[in-house]
Nucleic acid binder design. Sequence first.
DNA 1: TTGAAAGCGCTAACAG
DNA 2: CTGTTAGCGCTTTCAA
Lengths: 342, 342
Amino acid sequence: MTATRRPTLADVAREVGVSAKTVSRVLNEDGPSSPETRRRVLEAVAKLGFQPNLMARSMRVGGPDTTVGLVVPDLGNPFFGAVAGGIEDAVHGHGLTLLMGSSDDDPEREHALIRTFLARRVSVLMVAPAVGADHAHLKSHRAAGMPVVFLDRPGNGLTTDTVVSSNRAGTQEGVAHLIAGGHRRIGFIGDLPARLYTRRERQAGYRAALAGAGLPHDRGLVADAHDPAGAAEATARLLALPDPPTALLSGNNVMTIGVMTELSRSGRKDVAVVAFDDVPMAGILEPALTVVAQNPVTMGESAGAAALERLGGDRGRARTILVDTRLVPRGSGELPPPARTR
Amino acid sequence: MTATRRPTLADVAREVGVSAKTVSRVLNEDGPSSPETRRRVLEAVAKLGFQPNLMARSMRVGGPDTTVGLVVPDLGNPFFGAVAGGIEDAVHGHGLTLLMGSSDDDPEREHALIRTFLARRVSVLMVAPAVGADHAHLKSHRAAGMPVVFLDRPGNGLTTDTVVSSNRAGTQEGVAHLIAGGHRRIGFIGDLPARLYTRRERQAGYRAALAGAGLPHDRGLVADAHDPAGAAEATARLLALPDPPTALLSGNNVMTIGVMTELSRSGRKDVAVVAFDDVPMAGILEPALTVVAQNPVTMGESAGAAALERLGGDRGRARTILVDTRLVPRGSGELPPPARTR
DNA sequence: TTGAAAGCGCTAACAG
DNA sequence: CTGTTAGCGCTTTCAA
C-alpha cells in the first residue's frame, strides 16, 4: 500500500479548471463567486476529499496558530481535567483547539512544553506553574500579543492574568466552621512542597481562622505529605499527640484520600474533618465529608474568557480572577469535639 | 504598546551576516558548519530570542504536524484524563504533543473535531467514539499513512487499531464473584444509551456469568440511567421489586455514584455491590467498595505505543488490544445474601 | 563550508 | 466575477 498524497487547493483548481484563488474564495466565502463556479468547486472538493491545510493557512495569514497551549502538572488529576474542560467550552466556539501537556510539576518539563508551544505559535498560553518555574522569558511573547494566563497558581517573574481559587478565604471559612462547632485544636494536613502556592494560601487561611478566633497557632498541629500514604501517616501522627487535635483540615483532594483512609482504618469517627476540594463520593462516606468545594470548570471558563478578551485587543492591566470556593457542610465538619475533661 | 514581530530565520541570518540556510543548518545540525559560524549564529539566536516556527517547518518538510489528535467524550471524566496522561507519556519522548477536544458524546461535534484535526494534519488520530458516529471517511487518511486508533470503544465503518478494556470478561468476573458469594438475584445498573459499546459488553458479561452459573436472566433486574440521580432511582426501583436483587453490578463510575448514594440514603448495607471502574475513595466506604478496576493509563500507553509502531512503518493488520481489568475485593462484593425464607 | 533559488499550500493585494 | 503575482518562514536542491 502506497501513501497517497493529500489533495491541495491546486488539485481542486485543476479539476475544476479555475485558479487556486477562486477555490480559496469559494471555501472562505471571501469575495464574490458565481453560483455555477461555486457549485463546481464544492463538487470537486467533495470528490477529491480536499481538506484545506490549516498550517499553510495560518502561516500565510501570519496570525498565530488556532490553538490554546495548556500546561498542567498532571493530566490524570480530575481537577485539571475539569479545568481543561472549562477552557475548551469557552474557546471552542471561537475556533480554538486545546494543545495540552503535563509538566509533572517539573520546571524543566514545563519549560520544554512551553518552548514547544511557543514554537507552534499558539494563540494563547495557559500554565498551571510547576513549583520553582520561572516565567520571565514569556514577557516578550506577551508583548508580541500572545495572551498568557496562569491557572491555579500565579507564575513567577511575569505579571499577567491569573485565575485562582479563593484558597485562603475558603480554607478560613472551613476552619471557622470547625471552630464554630466548638473545636479548639485543629490539625492541618498540607501537601508538599510547602512553598507550593496553594498550600501556602490554604495554610494562611487556616492560621487566619485560628487568629480570628483568638486560638493559638500550634505548629505541631501542622503536618505534611506528598501522597495519600504520607497523609495517612501524618494523620495518625497528629492523632497520637498527647493533646491531639479534635478536628482536621485536609489541604487538597490527594491528602483527603490519605486522611480519610487513616480515620477509617483506625475507626475514628469522632474526628471532625473539612476537606479542601470536593471529591465524588464525599456524600456517601460516614460521616459524609464536609468540603470546601472548588469550581474547576468555572476556573477554566474564566481563563478562556480572559484570553479571548486579550485576543480581542484588551490591553488593560493584568487581572487576578478569584474563583469562589463554597463550603458544603455534609456532616464530618459538624462533629462536636469530645467533652473536655478539666 | 505595539505588537512586536517575532524574529525569523532571516532576521538571525541578517544579524550574523550569513544566509538563512546557514542558520538553518546550524540549528538542525544538518550539514557541516564552521565552529566560528556556529558560535555566532547561536549567539544571535539567543540575543534575538529566535524560536523557529514549527508550522513553517512542518509545512516545508511536507510531513505531518507533530501532534496526536485526541477526541474524547468528556475531558472532565477522570477516566479519559488518565487515558490522555498515558498517551502523553508514551509519545512525548518522540516529539509529539497532544491536541485534545471533547465531543460531549455528540457525533456532530466529534466529526467537527476530527475535521479540525485532519486539517491540522495531525500525525495520529485517536478517538473514543461517540455513540452513532461513523468513521468510514477516515479510511483514506489512514491509507495516506495517518495512524488511527480507537480508544475505549471501537469505531464504526473502519477497521483499525483499537484499545479497549476487557469489559465483558471483567464484568463476568465481577458477577461470578457475587454468585460465588451465594447471590442468585443480581441487578445490573447500566448507562444509557443501551447501545453504547461498553454498556453492551458489560451487560453481555453479566449475562454470561448468570448463564455460566445456570441462573435465569431476569430482564426485570436490568435498569438504565444516564446520570447519578437516574442511577439512584433505578437502584431504588430494583430494590422495591417483590423479589428484589440481593446484589448489584454497577456498570460504570458515574452509575456507581448514584447506586451508592441510594444505598447510603436508604441505609441498605445488606446489598452486595460490585462496581465497574475504580473510584478514589472506594476503600473508605462502608462497606468498602469491591470493584472491577480498569487501567486507563495503560490503555493510553498502549494506544500511544501502537500509534508509534504504525508511524514507524508497521503496515500489519489492525489489532485489538484488550487491556485487562482486575477484580479488587474490598468488602461490598463479599456480603452474603440474606438467609432465604422458603 | 556556504549560498541562491525554488517551493511547501495557502491567501493578500492588485489587476483585469 | 476571476486570475496573476508575490510571499508567509522554512528547508530542499543544487551550485559555488
